[in-house]
Computed example of a mutant assay.
Amino acid sequence: MSVYKFSFYAAALLIAVGALLIFSDSTSSILGEVEQETNAKISAYAVARDTDTQYFNEDGSLSYTFKAAELKHYRPNDEEASSYSTAKKPIIEFVGQTNPWEIEAQKAHVSNERIITMSEDVIAQHTDLNNMHTVMHTQELIFEPEQKLAYTNKPVTIVSPLGKVSAVGMIADLQQRKITLKSKVKGLHSPEKINP
């Protein structure tokens, strides 16, 4: 290789290295902001499909069942301080002293403390001992199985043979069979539909 070719390649290499050093050390006002991916996808460490899980009371009696088309388990991360799970098409059947309540939705988030937040098209239904069917609709329902409580701050509609009630916010004590509506309560009472 001739001296001229070598000198040419050496000069080109020095110019390239110099340009790299100048640009890598430049402020963002010259180069512009570099976008960083902040919403990195968090991967589940376990996935189960078509699940059917039973939870029991301390005395061994069945408390509730949790079914889901898909259940994903996640470790703690930047968004969640402790482990959690997500579910697609969850169904919870709460088995109380009377006929069970069934709660279904499009998805759910289950915290490490087993607080279940069901969302998107949440439907809770129950048929009592008198064969009266009650259906509740909302977009979010938080279920605390240990306390046998379900609640929401979202709009809720309850339909039964007695009529139709709508409100914003609700607390349901599933053990005591008591529902408390929080605000903006409107209703239509139709007692004539009940057979004596």
Score class of each variant (00 low, 15 high):
residue 156 V to D: 02
residue 108 A to G: 04
residue 129 L to A: 15
residue 75 R to A: 14
residue 153 N to R: 13
residue 144 E to I: 08
residue 75 R to V: 04
residue 102 E to Y: 10
residue 134 T to F: 02
residue 133 H to R: 07
residue 116 I to T: 10
residue 93 E to Q: 14
residue 136 M to W: 10
residue 103 I to R: 02
residue 102 E to Q: 12
residue 121 D to H: 09
residue 77 N to D: 15
residue 138 T to P: 00
residue 94 F to S: 01
residue 91 I to A: 01
residue 136 M to K: 09
residue 98 T to V: 13
residue 157 T to W: 07
residue 105 A to N: 01
residue 132 M to D: 08
residue 149 L to N: 12
residue 92 I to Y: 05
residue 93 E to P: 03
residue 113 E to P: 02
residue 129 L to Y: 04
residue 140 E to P: 01
residue 81 A to H: 11
residue 115 I to T: 08
residue 81 A to Q: 13
residue 101 W to P: 01
residue 80 E to Q: 15
residue 113 E to F: 14
residue 99 N to H: 07
residue 130 N to R: 15
residue 127 T to D: 01
residue 126 H to W: 09
residue 110 V to Q: 04
residue 156 V to H: 09
residue 146 E to D: 02
residue 137 H to F: 06
residue 127 T to C: 03
residue 83 S to Y: 10
residue 116 I to F: 07
residue 120 E to W: 04
residue 155 P to R: 10
residue 130 N to M: 12
residue 85 S to I: 03
residue 120 E to D: 14
residue 103 I to Y: 02
residue 91 I to K: 10
residue 85 S to K: 15
residue 102 E to C: 01
residue 94 F to R: 08
residue 125 Q to L: 02
residue 131 N to L: 14
residue 153 N to T: 12
residue 140 E to L: 13
residue 75 R to P: 00
residue 115 I to Y: 06
residue 160 S to V: 09
residue 106 Q to F: 03
residue 157 T to C: 01
residue 148 K to G: 00
residue 105 A to E: 03
residue 156 V to L: 05
residue 128 D to E: 08
residue 142 I to V: 15
residue 142 I to A: 04
residue 130 N to W: 10
residue 84 Y to M: 03
residue 98 T to H: 06
residue 104 E to F: 04
residue 78 D to S: 06
residue 135 V to K: 14
residue 159 V to S: 11
residue 101 W to H: 06
residue 103 I to G: 00
residue 108 A to F: 03
residue 108 A to S: 07
residue 121 D to P: 00
residue 137 H to L: 06
residue 158 I to F: 05
residue 75 R to L: 15
residue 102 E to N: 06
residue 116 I to D: 06
residue 95 V to H: 12
residue 78 D to T: 08
residue 85 S to L: 12
residue 133 H to S: 07
residue 151 Y to D: 10
residue 151 Y to F: 15
residue 76 P to T: 11
residue 149 L to A: 12
residue 123 I to D: 05
residue 143 F to W: 11
residue 89 K to P: 00
residue 91 I to P: 00
residue 83 S to H: 04
residue 134 T to Y: 05
residue 152 T to C: 09
residue 155 P to Q: 13
residue 152 T to E: 00
residue 134 T to I: 04
residue 86 T to K: 11
residue 98 T to I: 06
residue 79 E to C: 02
residue 80 E to P: 00
residue 119 S to A: 14
residue 116 I to E: 07
residue 128 D to Y: 09
residue 153 N to M: 04
residue 99 N to C: 03
residue 83 S to C: 00
residue 125 Q to C: 01
residue 133 H to G: 02
residue 139 Q to R: 10
residue 78 D to N: 11
residue 126 H to E: 05
residue 100 P to G: 05
